[in-house]
């Protein structure tokens, strides 16, 4: 899907005959969002065992620390973020009304439905896969880090210490496993099934059925159902998400604003060509006048 879209854009840029607007582009993605896969992260069920961190590190060869070192809960004392050598980390948040109640929250790339990073990327090194993942192609990447600027979740990490072949590093949604019909490594290992992998629309149903079955246990809001146009990874929390590390975001997806401005400016190259023609006309008209004046003089 995304490949076609990119080619489409390339063609558009090549020939001004084709027309492209930001809104048609947005609709194209929206119609697909129900079919993508996602993961529902239930932080109320999560026990903070950090097995997902271990499984992720194993799957991606990020760390060879042994299983038992992940029993260490002292890491929760500080707030951690995913980085170039850890695609996912588990943090803790507390109930503001009762600070003795602690919940664990796994964080990783949200795999947005309309990813700002994908819209930002200058060479199309980031793409939204039709299965749901936002994939990165290091071969294309020029290392400009605009995706990091664009991401509203501060997810993409960069190998700053690598002088020659630095890459953007983030959760891959184990897209190779997903393509084979398996669930991501973190979901597979989760002992308490705090992570549920499945079609995104079914996960939303599941979330609401949990609200219904456990009154009072959840803050009844599926974080990621609508945030920035919806995300493939969604969260259930025990308290209002504003008391967690999840950023407060509106439902509007981020790319349309810049894309509408861009496509407005470039719409079939008409505005630039119009400006060109106008300037040419001015140049010519005033030039002629001057010549006439010179002749008169």
């Amino acid at each position: 899907m995304s490949l076609d879209r990119r080619k489409f854009l390339g063609i558009t840029a090549l020939s001004s005959a084709t027309l492209l607007t930001g809104s048609t582009h947005a609709h194209e993605i929206e119609s697909k969002t129900d079919e993508v896969y996602g993961v529902l992260v239930d932080t109320v069920v999560c026990i903070g065992c950090r097995k997902c961190e271990w499984a992720c590190n194993q799957e991606h060869g990020l760390s060879d620390k042994d299983l038992k070192s992940y029993e260490d809960k002292s890491v929760f004392k500080e707030h951690r973020r995913p980085n170039a050598s850890a695609y996912t980390v588990v943090n803790e948040y507390r109930d503001p009304a009762d600070s003795s109640k602690a919940y664990s929250m796994k964080v990783q790339c949200m795999h947005c439905n309309e990813p700002a990073c994908v819209s930002a990327c200058i060479v199309g090194a980031l793409e939204k896969n039709e299965l749901g993942s936002v994939d990165y192609d290091a071969w294309k990447c020029i290392g400009c880090r605009y995706c990091i600027i664009a991401c509203p979740f501060q997810v993409p990490a960069y190998e700053y210490e690598n002088p020659l072949t630095p890459q953007i590093r983030k959760c891959t949604f184990c897209h190779e496993r997903v393509a084979k019909g398996e669930s991501p490594a973190c979901v597979s290992i989760c002992p308490n099934e705090a992570l549920t992998f499945g079609p995104r629309s079914k996960l939303i149903d599941l979330a609401h059925s949990r609200f219904k079955a456990n009154p009072g246990r959840y803050h009844e809001h599926v974080y990621g159902e609508n945030e920035v146009g919806g995300t493939s990874w969604m969260y259930l929390t025990a308290v209002d998400t504003k008391h967690t590390e999840l950023p407060v975001l509106s439902a509007a997806p981020l790319p349309p604003l810049t894309e509408i401005i861009q496509h407005g400016i470039f719409k079939s190259f008409v505005p630039p060509l119009a400006l060109y023609a106008l300037l040419g006309l001015i140049m010519h008209t005033i030039g002629d006048k001057n010549e006439e004046q010179e002749v008169k003089e």
């Binding site: 996960l203 599941l206 059925s209």
Partner: peptide, 13 residues
């Protein structure tokens, strides 16, 4: 049937 936990999930929960 996403609502039904797997055996691992059922035990641990």
């Amino acid at each position: 049937n996403l609502r039904q936990p797997s055996l691992k999930g059922a035990y641990h929960r």
